[in-house]
């Protein structure tokens, strides 16, 4: 009798063990493989050459992050798939497990796709002209001649939140004109997405007074998944762990912001 019981309990244990293992497996589209969506151009986020539907010699912030996530999830095979930004926010079935495409999390978008927890704070950066004393607070920005690119978060911030004394200079179309204005000293400080101003300051050292700081806008980049994806809890856990252990901060410094500009209050 005892033996039978023992056998039965062992069998039961075995069953629960395998069931446990199965539920532990990460629910990716193809078991044991992670398919990550990307789109180009996205300098510093995704470097490398697109070829067919994938990318050759990838590097960059989002690439490195996807590798770190795969490692955290215990998946060794990662496939990269070009998922055009234009078709990202559609209810179409997604061919990727998640996509990293510098997507700001918004409620509207969350109606059709699922977002991971934020992996990057899409703050606004303040690029100042050469020779200007570094502003250390939001109040100090108000007395400067500010400039922005038309229809950007930066311009909206200046007009609706900051309300500086002088009217901001607004440059349309590309950011080039705005950068030129800072370089020429026509504008004291340009307010634009912090990774953009940081990469420009890096590209043209000596042309500007540097990135004086960043303004918290509470906008975050999140990974895009199919609506209701079962991967979400796993991905969220992995991203939170990578924030907690400093991996993401390290990657941001390596690829996007070096040094990380102080937050202006």
């Amino acid at each position: 009798m005892k033996r039978v019981l023992l056998a039965a309990s062992i069998a039961l244990l075995a069953i629960t063990a395998t069931a446990g293992a199965r539920s532990l497996a990460v629910p990716t589209k193809q078991p044991g493989k992670l398919i990550v969506g990307f789109d180009l151009p996205a300098p510093a986020f995704w470097n490398g050459r697109a070829t067919g539907t994938t990318i050759k010699n990838p590097s960059g912030f989002e690439y490195a992050l996807s590798q770190a996530i795969a490692k955290k999830l215990g998946i060794s095979k990662v496939q990269y798939l070009r998922a055009p930004f234009g078709g990202l926010f559609s209810p179409a079935p997604k061919k990727f497990d998640f996509a990293f495409e510098e997507v700001t999390i918004t409620a509207e978008r969350a109606k059709v796709v699922s977002f991971s927890t934020g992996y990057f704070d899409a703050n606004q950066g303040v690029l100042i002209r050469k020779g200007l004393k570094k502003p250390t607070s939001l109040a100090a920005l108000k007395s400067l001649q500010l400039c922005a690119q038309s229809s950007t978060t930066g311009l909206a911030y200046i007009q609706h939140k900051l309300r500086p004394k002088k009217k901001p200079l607004v440059y349309s179309a590309s950011s080039t004109a705005a950068f030129d204005a800072v370089e020429a000293g026509k504008c004291d400080a340009l307010i634009l997405d912090v990774p953009i101003v940081a990469s420009q300051a890096r590209k043209k050292p000596g042309a500007y007074g540097g990135v004086a700081g960043q303004i918290v806008t509470n906008e975050h980049y999140g990974a895009v998944m199919e609506k209701g994806s079962k991967l979400k809890p796993y991905l969220d856990r992995a991203i939170k762990a990578l924030i907690a252990n400093g991996t993401i901060k390290r990657l941001v410094t390596k690829w996007l912001l070096n040094p990380i500009p102080p937050v202006l209050k």
């Binding site: 789109d39 180009l40 151009p41 300098p43 050459r49 697109a50 070829t51 067919g52 539907t53 070009r82 998922a83 055009p84 234009g86 078709g87």
Partner: peptide, 18 residues
Amino acid sequence: TVIGVTEALAQAGFYSSD
């Protein structure tokens, strides 16, 4: 190229933005 097939024009665009 508009639907996101990586063909010659797309590559030319990537190149110019890089």
